[in-house]
Amino acid sequence: MMDQSFSNKNSHGKGRQMPIHYGSKKLNMATISSPLATQIPQAVGNAYALKREANGNCAICYFGEGAASEGDFHAALNMAATLKCPVIFYCRNNGYAISTPSAEQYKGDGIASRGEGYGIKTIRVDGNDIWAVYAATKKAKKFAVENNQPVLIEAMTYRVSHHSTSDDSSAYRPSKEVEDWTKRDNPILRLRKYMENQKIWSMEEEAEALKSIKTRVLEAFAAAEKMKKPTISTMFSDVYDNSPPHLQAQFEEVQALISKYPDYYKVNDFSSDL
């Protein structure tokens, strides 16, 4: 994950996408695309193909309540229902799409109410309760796979952070609201309380874990930051399966320029193409 965030040569996306656009073929995780909701109908297609493979697998697609306003969301649900696809639509309803509160995003009963309209079995779950989310997802998978049908899950939660590092949410919501949610109802807090009640976790273990995890994160951070970027030719690969002549010529143009201006282009940050 650090490698992806630092766009270094070990990142799966080869340094091409912005941070947190993860993906892993090994983990069956489709690489994230920034345009919202585009991957919801794609998940339906994945599910259809999985159904034909008949291996007991299904697809799951995560998205926000804001993304559910896109046409792609509606197309996806209707396609999944009519084509009987084993897909789980998992909507995280965290109350905001950047600055837009859900009250301005929809007027119906959340996202869950839409499932019924498309003839899709739907579960609404407390998104801050990790066990409830786990149980709902498990049940949805069983249902989807056994019946070759889609399931919609709406997990209710609250976005305690800003939308992104370039967002300051105090411009559109009271910080008191954020504080309340952070203190009162937060998935991490609730899991910790549960574990403490079960006597499988303690304040001391928490402190210790926080410390050691922080160290590990910082180590990974430093290592990923130091790592060279991918080779410059990586810019031109994967556009097609094989590089057509015009891209090869363009790469040659880049090479010619950087051999004339190596300091300017800071080519030392990049792995060598040789």
Binding site: S7, G15, M235, H246, L257, I258, Y265
Partner: peptide, 13 residues
Amino acid sequence: FDTPFPLIFERFY
């Protein structure tokens, strides 16, 4: 160039 807009290669693109 005729590639998608690449993050880390922007300066070459």
